[in-house]
Amino acid sequence: MVRIAFVCTGNTCRSPMAEGLARHILGPGVEVESAGLAAWGGDPANGKAIQVLKEKGIDIASHQARAVSRDILASADWVIPMTQTHERQLKDAFPEWSSKVKRLGAWHSQGKYQDVRDPWGGSVETYRQCAQEIETLLHEVKTGLKAH
């Protein structure tokens, strides 16, 4: 069983979408969770994130935000943040686990993607574009996991 923790800022947009999408894309044998570097514990997923994933048949309505913790990082095989800044913050705060921190865009085979931009405050279409980018990158993660 491979355990992955997705990390963004508030754990209400990108990382819950990544968690929901990953459950469908990565399949059995991969356990996923998410957290935020500046999350308010218990906040729901953003309504637009819920709507966009619902359009894909994925329900994240029961998601509750939580902050990154040592326990989350310790139990994960991979910690996948959304941006280079998140990656740097995680590696600085938790150097003992820096070898398993790899931002989502870094899994892309051609290194084409950098950061998954935060859709917060954007339109539903902005959330759809973000979800599509995450979905594309999760297929790269799936390929990368097979290689490990």
Results as ranks from 00 to 15, higher is better:
Gly20Thr: 03
Gln114Met: 14
Ala67Met: 13
Lys56Ala: 04
Gly47Trp: 05
Glu125Asp: 15
Gly42Val: 11
Arg23Leu: 08
Ser69Gly: 12
Arg70Cys: 04
Ala5Val: 14
Gln129Glu: 13
His63Gly: 01
Lys48Cys: 03
Gly29Asn: 10
Thr83Val: 11
Val68Ala: 06
Pro95His: 08
Ala93Thr: 12
Ile4Tyr: 01
Ile58Met: 04
Ala106Val: 02
Ala61Pro: 05
Gln64Pro: 06
Met17Leu: 02
Trp120Arg: 11
Cys8Lys: 00
Gly36Met: 04
Pro28Gln: 14
Gly29Tyr: 09
Thr12Tyr: 02
His108Gln: 08
Ile58Tyr: 05
Met17Tyr: 08
Ala18Glu: 04
His24Met: 12
Gly121Cys: 06
Gly111Glu: 12
Arg70Gly: 15
Arg23Trp: 05
Phe94Trp: 14
Leu37Ile: 15
Ala74Arg: 14
His108Trp: 01
Thr126Pro: 03
Ala18Ser: 04
Leu53Ile: 09
Val101His: 00
Cys8Ser: 08
Lys91Asn: 07
Pro119Gln: 05
Leu37Gly: 04
Trp97Pro: 00
Thr12Met: 10
Asn11Met: 14
Thr83Ala: 12
Arg103Gln: 02
Ala38Val: 12
Ala45Glu: 07
Gln51Asp: 14
Ile58Asn: 02
Arg14Thr: 07
Ala38Met: 13
Pro16Ala: 02
Val101Lys: 02
Gly47Ile: 04
Val116Arg: 00
Pro119Asp: 05
Arg103Glu: 05
Gln89Asn: 10
Gly105Asn: 11
Thr9Trp: 00
Cys130Thr: 15
Thr126Glu: 10
Arg70Asp: 13
Cys13Tyr: 04
Glu33Gly: 02
Gly122Met: 12
Ala65Val: 08
Val7Phe: 05
Ala65Tyr: 09
Glu33Phe: 06
Asp59Phe: 09
Ser69Phe: 11
Asp43Ala: 14
Gly105Asp: 09
Leu53Lys: 07
Arg70Lys: 14
Asn11Gln: 11
Val124Met: 01
Ala74Met: 03
Gly42Gln: 10
Lys48Tyr: 13
Gly111Ser: 11
Ser69Ala: 12
Leu90Arg: 08
Lys112Met: 00
Glu87Gly: 08
Glu87Tyr: 00
Arg128Tyr: 10
Gly42Ser: 10
Asn11Pro: 14
Leu21Pro: 00
Val79Pro: 03
Leu53Phe: 11
Ser123Asp: 12
Gln64Asp: 06
Asp92Ser: 10
Arg128Trp: 11
Ser75Asp: 09
Ser75Met: 06
Leu90Pro: 04
Gln51Tyr: 10
Arg103Lys: 06
Gly36Val: 07
Val30Ala: 00
Ala67Phe: 00
Gln64Thr: 13
Val101Ser: 05
Leu73Cys: 09
Gly122Arg: 07
Ala45Gly: 07
Gln89Met: 12
Pro81Cys: 05
Arg88Phe: 00
Ser75Lys: 15
Pro95Ile: 09
